[in-house]
């Protein structure tokens, strides 16, 4: 059995003459949490768009839980849960209607969908708020709901692109801890893109993306070499810029 949840090899992408990603390769083992840290414009969003096939790779391969996304896009997408940087909830629909819409998009309905939605709401402790409009939820709850929704179809890989954007520090910490727990308890392969160093834990696998290249890949505390991650990150990205 393939032990990699996500495998990327030789991935490059250009927008016209501008190179967004330059020969990226990495593997993430099944059930592991991996943080992808990069300043704005590093290529994180392009990498995510390629991983979830919003755009096709110009060069390189992406394997999701053993499936090549270029050859089996639909089966590969079915194995992925995605939380986008932009909010994707319908504010005027209720919590339940939003979850039901997503379940439908993944071909679930009836009892199967109800069970999956019930599980998602339990995970959020929001069972009693299912008939409330999403507009009534605070930012943290909306984000948690998007994460729970991304797990409705029982994916094996969870992609989160700057999932805590716009949230306060306390909520960010809670959501980061929640996703770490998901990787550990649910055997999910998680890739967490962020530009905020405090969301990366010392024992996390960390990849630093800068100017379309992975400039570091390893365990966070080893990459930091006794310094804070913030210092290391600043030094790395500034020295690359220089």
């Amino acid at each position: 059995m393939n032990s990699f949840g996500l495998r990327v090899a030789g991935l490059s992408h250009h927008y016209g003459s501008k190179c967004a990603l330059n020969d990226i390769s990495f593997d993430i083992e099944r059930g592991n949490f991996c943080a992808l840290l990069g300043p704005n414009g590093a290529g994180k969003s392009t990498l995510y768009a390629l991983l979830c096939r919003l755009i096709s790779a110009q060069q390189g391969t992406i394997i999701i839980d053993g499936l090549d996304i270029a050859k089996n896009p639909r089966r590969a997408l079915a194995k992925m849960g995605i939380v986008f940087q932009q909010p994707t909830l319908d504010l005027d629909l209720t919590v339940q209607q939003n979850l039901s819409y997503f379940a439908g998009l993944h071909g679930l309905s009836g009892k199967e969908a109800r069970l999956a939605m019930g599980k998602a709401l339990d995970r959020l402790s929001m069972g009693e708020r299912e008939n409330e409009k999403v507009r009534a939820l605070n930012g943290g709850h909306r984000r948690r709901m998007e994460i729970a929704r991304a797990l409705i179809h029982n994916p094996s890989v969870l992609l989160l692109d700057e999932a805590t954007v716009g949230l306060d520090a306390q909520t960010r910490r809670e959501i980061t801890a929640h996703v770490h727990a998901l990787a550990e308890l649910d055997d999910l392969t998680v890739i967490w893109a962020t530009h905020l160093v405090d969301e990366v834990w010392p024992d996390d696998r960390l990849m630093i993306l800068h100017q379309g290249k992975i400039i570091r890949d390893g365990i966070t505390k080893e990459i930091s070499e006794g310094n804070t991650l913030a210092e290391t990150f600043a030094n790395l990205t500034e020295s690359e810029d220089a």
């Binding site: 979830c52 995605i82 994707t88 997503f102 998009l105 993944h106």
Partner: peptide, 19 residues
Amino acid sequence: REMGSMRLLLTSPMPRWWL
């Protein structure tokens, strides 16, 4: 598309033409 819900639709595992 700007707000993201188009992404949600297009990352469904159904054929894109069908969506």
